[in-house]
Amino acid sequence: MAVQLDHTIVHAHDRRVSAEFLAEVLGLAVGSPMGPFLPVDTGNGVTLDYYQTDGDFTPGHYAFLVPDEEFDTMIGRLERMRVTYFADPGHTEPGRINTLFGGRGAYFDDPSGHNMEIITRPYAR
């Protein structure tokens, strides 16, 4: 068996708010709590386990490969939620998407300050 990522912990100021935010944008469901964690299953065997903390943490970057036919729907959800999205990771091109590697992509912040990314094509490696 090849090594695979199973889950990762995502620190949040409010685990429910952050988990529900991501689930809504991506069209996913929030799972039942597992101890201190609130999971969002991405559907490819990887779970983001939201963990609430009152302390400081360094925001991370999470990139999601999404179906091209669902990208516009996700952008529409961000717009409906009044969340600004950007074409670049530095957030200097608001309201725009990128077309890297023949796909489409956008960046946005979640409620805890994590830099989220949706892309329709994986980056060239």
Rank of each mutant, 00 (worst) to 15 (best):
A87Y: 02
Q52P: 03
V10H: 01
N44A: 00
P39D: 08
H61L: 00
E70R: 15
H61W: 02
F64R: 01
F37L: 03
G35T: 12
F71D: 10
T84E: 14
D54C: 04
L5H: 09
E69F: 05
A87G: 05
V10K: 04
P36C: 11
R80L: 06
G102F: 01
I9E: 02
A63M: 05
T58F: 02
S18G: 09
D68M: 12
R77F: 04
R80G: 09
N98E: 04
R16C: 02
G35K: 11
Q4N: 12
I9M: 10
L28I: 04
F37S: 11
V30S: 07
E70M: 13
E20A: 11
G55V: 05
I75P: 14
L26F: 04
P33W: 10
F101V: 07
T99L: 11
R80W: 07
T42M: 04
H13K: 13
V17S: 13
G60D: 01
L100W: 14
M34F: 12
Y62G: 00
F57C: 01
L26V: 00
S18Q: 13
A63L: 02
H61C: 05
F86V: 03
H91K: 12
S18L: 13
D6G: 09
P94W: 12
Y62R: 00
L28M: 03
D68I: 07
E20T: 08
T47Q: 14
R82Y: 01
M74C: 03
H7T: 07
G31Y: 12
D41V: 05
A29F: 10
M34I: 10
E93N: 11
P33V: 05
G45D: 10
G31V: 10
D41M: 00
T53H: 01
A29L: 15
E20I: 05
A87R: 03
H7V: 09
R82I: 00
P33L: 08
T92K: 06
V46P: 07
V66G: 08
T53S: 08
D68Q: 13
P36L: 11
T99D: 14
R80K: 15
L38Q: 13
G31E: 10
F21V: 05
D72M: 09
A19D: 08
L78Q: 03
G102E: 04
G45R: 11
G102M: 04
Q52D: 06
D68P: 04
L78A: 00
